[in-house]
Structure formats: structure tokens, C-alpha cells
């Protein structure tokens, strides 16, 4: 399953980067969302999948799935939410102030 998942993650990353390279600012925001999904899956997949019981000691199993990537990803999910929220508000405040949604038009002036 790891190899199959790696390919899926590769596709998710490709799409995310493709979106990030868009001109439309909403696509860029959605790109970051998709990128964070890919990232979380990548972290989990790299450490190996389904190596044992869920990391809860109540199960009294011999082996457990690696808990560390899970802890990392849990942190990452929450941070990603914070970043997305910030980005969205940044985008729409910017849109309200300047009425611009095309990154081509959002370039700094030449003399900067």
C-alpha cells in the first residue's frame, strides 16, 4: 500500500503545485489546502502503514503503529488550519482594498 499511496501523494503534490502556480488568487489558496493534505499523508506514509494496532496501549498488543508521525501530523493539521484561515482573510481583505484577484496585476511597482 505504501507504494500506491506514494503515487497518490505524488499526484496530490503535482496538482497542488500546479494550483499554486495559477494566476487566480483563489486557486493559490486552494492549492495550499491541497498541499497540506498531501503533506500530512506523506508524513504518515513514509513511516510505514498499518504496522500494528492503533497507538493506544489499552489494546495490549505486541506492536503499535508508529505514534510519532501521528503526533507530528496532528500538530501539522492544526497549524495548517491556522495558516489557511490567515491566508483566506489576507486574500479577501486584499481583494476588498484593491479589487484585484489576478496575481499578474498584484506585482509591485517597477521602482520598488
Amino acid at each position: 500500500m505504501e507504494i500506491a499511496m506514494s503515487i497518490v501523494i505524488g499526484i496530490v503534490f503535482s496538482v497542488a503545485v500546479y494550483m499554486l502556480l495559477s494566476r487566480n488568487i483563489i486557486r493559490v489558496v486552494l492549492g495550499t489546502l491541497i498541499l497540506s493534505h498531501g503533506n500530512h499523508l506523506l508524513l504518515i506514509t513514509m513511516s510505514g502503514l498499518q504496522r500494528g494496532a492503533p497507538p493506544l496501549l489499552n489494546f495490549n498488543e505486541e506492536s503499535y503503529t508508529d505514534p510519532l508521525p501521528q503526533a507530528l501530523v496532528l500538530t501539522a493539521i492544526v497549524i495548517a488550519f491556522g495558516v489557511t484561515a490567515f491566508l483566506i482573510v489576507l486574500v479577501y481583505r486584499m481583494y476588498k482594498e484593491h479589487e484585484l484577484d489576478d496575481l499578474e496585476d498584484l506585482r509591485g511597482s517597477i521602482d520598488e
Binding site: 507504494i3 506514494s6 501523494i9 499526484i11 503534490f13 503535482s14 496538482v15 500546479y18
Partner: peptide, 23 residues
Amino acid sequence: RLIISIGVGVMVTLGSISAFTLG
């Protein structure tokens, strides 16, 4: 744009597989 996004995807896939196997 296409080349770079596909490149990133391939890079992530290969990196993930290698990391898993080597790990």
C-alpha cells in the same frame, strides 16, 4: 508550469518510496 508541477510530484513519490524502503 506543467513540467515543474509534475516534477514535484515525481520527486515526492520517489522520495516517499525511498524513505519508506530505507527506513
